[in-house]
């Protein structure tokens, strides 16, 4: 449903995203992993129109959406969340989610009802009338997901929705994301929490310094020397293997 062809983005001399091509199948949960600064969030920004790519193209549902405005891409069905949560502070949780619901629902009462239903799906039903600014980090992350979900996306791009959560909060969120996929929405997530990637991801891409360096099932990737070196530094894979051999 999503295809990136030779996508690149340079900021000055920095190649933040360098010739990335990938194809995402419908109905799956896939993960984009990689060390900090690898270009994951930039890649999301290129896909959703927040930055114009320096090269390459983005194809969504068979249409070339390269360089389209973010709201058009959202209307086409590809919706992102933000790593740094962006609630509409001063508005309630219900009102926040309703803005997403309004994408396809003109009527105010119907959008508010839809917001309530979406809040239930992500576990915010008990905080509907709270000010979004008063939510905990975990609550705000759920609100990000809820707002995006309320737009009825076909592809949901989740940018580190588990960062900053404690292990029990992460355990709570995983089934929520799985339930979203089961409702027919394809999910691509950026995640550092490997527990989540292992449990959720059916497929993963590893990005390092703007380039895709590996692709495959998350468990296989975790053992891939190239991936280990990207995270831990050159020579680490060999040393780890040696360590295991010695033991």
């Amino acid at each position: 449903m999503l295809e990136l062809r030779h996508l690149s983005k340079t900021f000055g001399g920095l190649r933040a995203v360098d010739d990335v091509s990938l194809t995402l199948a419908e109905g799956s949960i896939a993960a984009l992993i990689g060390p900090n600064g690898a270009g994951k969030t930039t890649l999301f920004a290129l896909m959703t129109g927040f930055h114009p790519p320096s090269g390459g193209s983005v194809h969504f549902l068979g249409h070339d959406v390269t360089g389209e405005k973010p709201f058009r891409i959202a209307r086409a069905g590809m919706v992102r969340t933000f790593q740094i949560v962006q609630p509409f502070a001063g508005q309630t949780v219900r009102e926040n989610i309703a803005v997403g619901a309004h994408l396809h629902i003109a009527d105010r009462a119907a959008a508010l009802a839809k917001a309530e239903e979406v809040a239930r799906r992500v576990g915010l039903a008990d905080r509907l009338d709270r000010d979004a600014a008063d939510l905990t980090v975990a609550g705000r992350k759920r609100l990000e997901v809820a707002r995006a979900l309320a737009t009825e996306p076909k592809l949901l791009l989740l940018d580190e929705v588990m960062a900053g959560l404690n292990p029990s909060e992460i355990r709570d969120v995983i089934p929520v994301i799985r339930a979203i996929r089961d409702s027919g929405i394809t999910i691509l997530l950026i995640e550092h929490v490997m527990q989540a990637v292992m449990e959720l991801g059916e497929r993963a891409w590893v990005l390092n310094q703007g380039r895709l360096i590996a692709e495959g099932a998350p468990r296989a990737l975790a053992a891939d020397p190239v991936v280990i070196e990207a995270y831990l530094g050159q020579g680490m894979a060999r040393r780890l293997a040696k360590g295991r051999g010695d033991a």
């Binding site: 973010p70 509409f88 995006a148």
Partner: peptide
């Protein structure tokens, strides 16, 4: 609702189709 969303956070609003 969309005006308030744009007022409070234009990028977040754009990301959900406003």
């Amino acid at each position: 609702a969309r005006m308030l969303a744009v007022r409070d956070n234009e990028d977040a609003a754009a990301a959900i189709g406003v």
